[in-house]
Nucleic acid binder design. Structure first.
Lengths: 221, 221
DNA sequence: CACAAAATACCACGATCATGCGATTGTTTT
DNA sequence: AAAACAATCGCATGATCGTGGTATTTTGTG
């Protein structure tokens, strides 16, 4: 159940390691050599080196990538690798655990996010997991991701808008003027005016922008 | 490093199990009894029973919760427990792995999401992990969450707005008028007017609502 | 230094908005 | 039948907006 869905069915998993600290790089590379099923074919200190190599060497299946690198940082690196080596999985291995870095890395296309204090077995396990379609993360990171996730899916509040009001609010959101809305709904200008008036009252705002903002912030409609 | 941050420092972790299948319930309950550090003090078939018990018994530290339950389903259950037992961690243990269920459960406040085909050790591990501030998930689920995450954070487009323009756009978004913005930034009304004019040109809109909509739709700022 | 870009400021005018009223017609609930 | 709500339409007025200009100062880059 673990190694039966990689793009290369046979042989060890081909791994690249990008890490500027020589000592840590050697530690990890050494670790891989003593592990069955994974082969660290390249280890370098910068993304630039890796990009150069990507043009001659065959693409690895997994890249272990640091974020705090000289020159191009890991986040930027992800984006380059994503277009250069679209089949390669990228696992971030870093000391940074702040929300922004995690967010950026994930959005850039990282398949996993580990902290450097992870035990070696966790790292090995994560490489296998990512090959099996998983998304290995430190437990702190996972909790962070869920938390961020929750924030961006606030339960939609209800201001008691009627259907007609919602309809008009929608047109307001798309930037139409009162007259344009009236035209589109075959209503009098005055009716639209009244509806908007009522919408403002219900939403506790007094400008179009305020209403539109509220729609997005509170996931109305 | 695993059991040193629960709200109850001493003794085994107090667990409740809510699962309507009697056989599976017994399997899990039995598993816990043979495991050090966890005590399954209650096992029931429905959320309603658990809610009734929550009024007399002391709150558990963790609830293992199924989704497909008779009566109140697990998702609704989460919301009730979240307000009734705010300190209790909830781990979903279910057969459903579709995006919607996962999303709903997480947004409702689940701390973890496991599939029923998880090996018993994984379940034990997850209970300990959630007590240590983690968010245990099946690897498929984790991958799903990251994927959904990425979708809802589209790369922000760039219209070449200057810092000042972004600042003013932000105030526009919050519903302020030109004069209010001028006051807040200690600028002349005319300056704000000019900036907004330029913002409109750069965003290719010609109303406040259009601009605000664009900000949210394309994740500007 | 020179040149470009950004930020600042001003004016005027027609279009549009927000908001105060009041009113009629239906539908649903009680 | 009464009350409550939704949707429709009307008017007037002062505030605000969008857009066409022009112009000075500050800042950054070659």
């Amino acid at each position: 159940m673990k190694s039966d869905r990689g793009s290369t069915p046979a042989g060890p998993i081909d791994l690249w390691l990008i890490e500027d600290n020589p000592r840590y790089r050697k530690t990890i590379a050494g670790l891989m050599e003593h592990t069955g099923g994974i082969h660290c074919s390249q280890a370098m200190a910068t993304c630039e080196e890796a990009i150069r190599l990507a043009e001659s060497e065959s693409p690895p299946q997994v890249i272990l990538l640091d974020i705090g690198l000289p020159g191009m940082n890991g986040i930027q690196g992800i984006e380059v690798f994503k277009s250069l080596l679209p089949t390669t999985h990228i696992i971030i291995l870093t000391i940074y655990d702040d929300n922004n870095k995690v967010l950026e890395a994930i959005c850039a296309g990282a398949s996993g996010y580990l902290l450097k204090d992870s035990p070696p077995e966790k790292i090995i396990e994560s490489i296998q997991e990512v090959m099996a379609g998983g998304a290995p993360m430190n437990m702190q990171i996972a909790a962070k991701v869920l938390e961020m996730f929750r924030e961006h899916y606030p339960k939609k509040s209800d201001y008691g808008l009627t259907e007609r009001e919602k309809e008009i609010l929608q047109h307001l959101v798309s930037g139409l003027t009162k007259q344009q809305i009236a035209g589109k709904l075959f209503l009098s200008f005055h009716t639209v005016n009244t509806h908007i008036k009522n919408i403002y009252t219900k939403l506790h705002v007094n400008t179009r922008s305020g209403a539109v903002s509220k729609v997005y912030k509170e996931k109305l409609l």
